[in-house]
Nucleic acid binder design. Structure first.
Lengths: 233, 233
DNA sequence: AAGTGGTCTAGACCACGAT
DNA sequence: TCGTGGTCTAGACCACTTA
């Protein structure tokens, strides 16, 4: 475990355990250096990480403070991939509608940077939060990277399998958001009415080496759709 | 100008000017150190900045590569505050509906961390993109921080005035997103129909010292609402 | 003036990828 | 094996806040 990663984790746990609130002051840099027995740069690196994650903010000449919003029930758009952490916070389940190997659509091939003759895994599922329909999800996985999938895996967390099972490193994601009206098919799946609002998100997930491996099209139930984004700068 | 900031700017301009595409390779660390006459750490800091901004990605043992998505016409949810940079890219205009000094609602007072007896500036305006209605915006500004506003200022960029005119430093923002149906009033302002979809975003803007100064409630026209988010890790 | 975070350096050593 | 980026150090100096 990297030192700065460890320090960041410790601090985050500390904030969580002691239920610190927005504006609460953390120990000064000097103290953290001594406490963890590392150099100033390493503490700084850990703090930069937490700042980018929206956990703290630093004020020159003043100190290090906790950043916390007060609202509950919002899903972070940035919290790692998909629902990795959300799975723990909320009760999310999945129902698989389709799973097969096929040739990608032109759109999927373009976004995955493969040929329309290459194989992809196609997954269609509905996800539920606390028993309510949360979203309808269609995913295309580059089969030369995600070499195997089955019903059990995609009923659980796909990303857990990709990182732990396949040992792949997820790097970054591009997400495109639209608001529109539900089609009849989508409304049926989500238990809503045709013409109701929807949040539609297309995501392209890349490995750390830049290869796209997952192109997903997700339609969210507007009733359950509460997202938050924390921006810095 | 900070060295690492300057290097980051230069690299970003370089990518822009030479129309580099996703996956194009940039000079290696060693070369950048020599080219800019700085230490390794400084180049690294610049590259981390660009990585967080979604401009590049780095692969250990391999190199530094350009990160670029192909889609046009999307507004970044994270690109600095509001529409600072978007103003240059797109043609955005504003029509002011209301501007006055008043006592905040309980909701606004809570989010701005002021008393309901304190004064706030209230701004209501419609923003247009290429002549089409983009959003209806209601903002509350803490008057003890934003000491003066007038019609001219809020017709242009409020954030430009806050940073340049008032010399304040914007630090971070919490944004909460919902999808819902338009009310009759909102539909009228945006030129849509009651019940049409909307993206509703509440934002709380903070100074670098953590003080909230702007609480905004924005309703987006779903037809114009194309957003993107670039996530790392 | 004292305290606190931010920038920058020079250099050692490590981990991963290409060949 | 070699090139490349990533981590970490010890320390100098700077910029801002607080009192």
């Amino acid at each position: 475990m990297l030192k700065y990663q460890h320090i960041a984790d410790e601090l985050e746990h500390y904030i969580e355990e002691h239920k610190l609130q927005q504006g609460d002051k953390l120990p000064v840099l000097q103290d953290l250096m001594v406490q963890f027995g590392v150099s100033k740069s390493t503490v700084t690196k850990a703090l930069e990480l937490l700042e980018t994650k929206g956990v703290i903010f630093q004020v020159r000449g003043s100190g290090i403070f906790v950043r916390r919003h007060k609202r509950k029930g919002y899903i972070s758009l940035l919290s790692t991939q998909g629902f990795k952490k959300v799975l723990e916070e909320f009760q999310i389940t999945s129902k698989v509608i389709e799973l097969d190997i096929r040739k990608p659509t032109k759109e999927a091939a373009l976004n995955l940077n493969v040929s329309v003759d290459d194989d992809v895994y196609y997954v269609k599922r509905i996800r539920y939060i606390h028993g309510q329909s949360l979203c309808l999800e269609e995913s295309y996985f580059n089969k030369s990277i995600i070499t195997y999938l089955n019903n059990e895996i995609i009923t659980e967390s796909i990303f857990h399998y990709i990182t732990e099972g396949l040992g792949l490193n997820v790097g970054f994601t591009d997400m495109f958001l639209h608001v529109d009206k539900l089609t009849e098919e989508e409304a049926d799946y989500l238990g809503l009415k045709k013409g109701d609002p929807k949040l539609y998100v297309e995501s392209i997930f890349h490995l750390t080496n830049g290869q796209p491996f997952d192109f997903s099209k997700v339609t969210y139930n507007y009733v359950q759709s509460q997202f938050f984004v924390q921006a810095v700068l």
